[in-house]
């Protein structure tokens, strides 16, 4: 091209040297990526493989990478004692109200912090920021006493659901607030001049504009609940209210020696998360990019 014509030989030499370096660099990068990918995938693949083997062949040495026979029947046998659909129903009975309540309150609160002006806003905001530093474990004991002794709600889902009405943790409120501040104020002022109420402005102007942030909040809440284990173990002791986390604990406890069935149960509990993630992944990454958490 015209460009290379204007370069003298010295520069050309430098360029090719740089190109070689770059090639080595990208080669290293690809290798690191591939190795990490294998390391991430390996434990997951291994339990999937093991879930399809007979218990005897699991202990064979050296182990085979692919199962010799694909025993899909393991899943059917597991389902005889592992009450998958009950756990599925219970888990989502718990997650759906939490995510809904968390998202809606996060939107309201984030809007209030971003747009409303009132006395004491700064103090309230600081108090809320402080809660990020408080690990959930710390308040576990007094909250347990509060729910079981004062409210007598032990054994129900309420101790798990009600806290999500606070926007599901301040991080989500903060995310919404940050995103709203990037929307030009003229937009909602114009709507107000046209006579729209605050509520209307929020739902017709703000909410559509912050959709990426809302997606992130929903997925964050989902993951948070999906991973929450200790609280479920503490509050739920009724067999009919068992969720995935508890069901799997009990199952692997009683079938600890039959690894293949326990593996099948594990694989089945991972599946819903995988499906939701595949659906939401694109908008999740996009949402995080758009919320522009750089500064």
């Amino acid at each position: 091209m015209g460009e290379s014509k204007t370069l003298n030989t010295n520069q050309a030499g430098k360029l090719s040297n740089k190109k070689v370096n770059e090639k080595i660099g990208s080669g290293v990068a690809t290798a690191v990526l591939a190795i990490t990918a294998v390391l991430v995938l390996l434990p997951l693949y291994w339990i999937f493989r093991s879930s399809l083997m007979s218990n005897g062949t699991l202990y064979a040495y050296p182990p085979s990478i692919l199962p010799k026979e694909w025993l899909w029947g393991n899943y059917a046998t597991t389902l005889e004692t592992f009450d998958y659909w009950l756990y599925f129903k219970n888990t989502f009975t718990l997650i759906v109200p939490c995510v809904t309540a968390g998202t809606i309150t996060a939107i309201f609160c984030g809007y209030a912090f971003a747009r409303l002006r009132f006395r004491g806003k700064k103090i309230i905001f600081t108090l809320c920021v402080g809660t990020i530093l408080l690990p959930g474990m710390v308040t576990l004991i007094p909250l347990y006493l509060f729910w079981t002794r004062i409210c007598h709600l032990g054994g129900t889902y309420w101790p798990l659901i009600l806290p999500y009405f606070t926007g599901g943790g301040f991080f989500n409120i903060y995310l919404v607030r940050q995103f709203i501040t990037t929307i030009p104020k003229e937009l909602d002022e114009a709507a107000e001049i046209d006579g729209a109420s605050r509520m209307r402005t929020l739902w017709t102007i703000i909410v559509p504009a912050i959709r990426p942030a809302i997606t992130v909040v929903i997925l964050m809440l989902f993951i948070q609940l999906w991973n929450d284990l200790l609280q479920q173990l503490i509050y739920i002791n009724d067999m009919t209210k068992t969720t995935f986390a508890i069901g799997l604990t009990n199952f692997t406890g009683s079938f600890g020696t039959k690894w293949n069935y326990a593996m099948a149960a594990t694989c089945m509990t991972i599946a819903p998360g995988l499906v939701i993630y595949i659906i939401g992944q694109k908008s999740f990454v996009e949402g995080i990019v758009l919320t522009g958490m750089k500064n």
């Binding site: 990490t36 990918a37 991430v40 995938l41 997951l44 993951i223 999906w226 991973n227 284990l229 995935f244 986390a245 799997l248 604990t249 692997t252 594990t266 509990t269 991972i270 998360g273 995988l274 993630y277 595949i278 992944q281």
Partner: peptide, 13 residues
């Protein structure tokens, strides 16, 4: 997608 996935597996699993 792959590297984010472990974050989605619940603790007991």
């Amino acid at each position: 997608g792959l590297m984010f996935f472990p974050f989605l597996i619940n603790g007991i699993a």
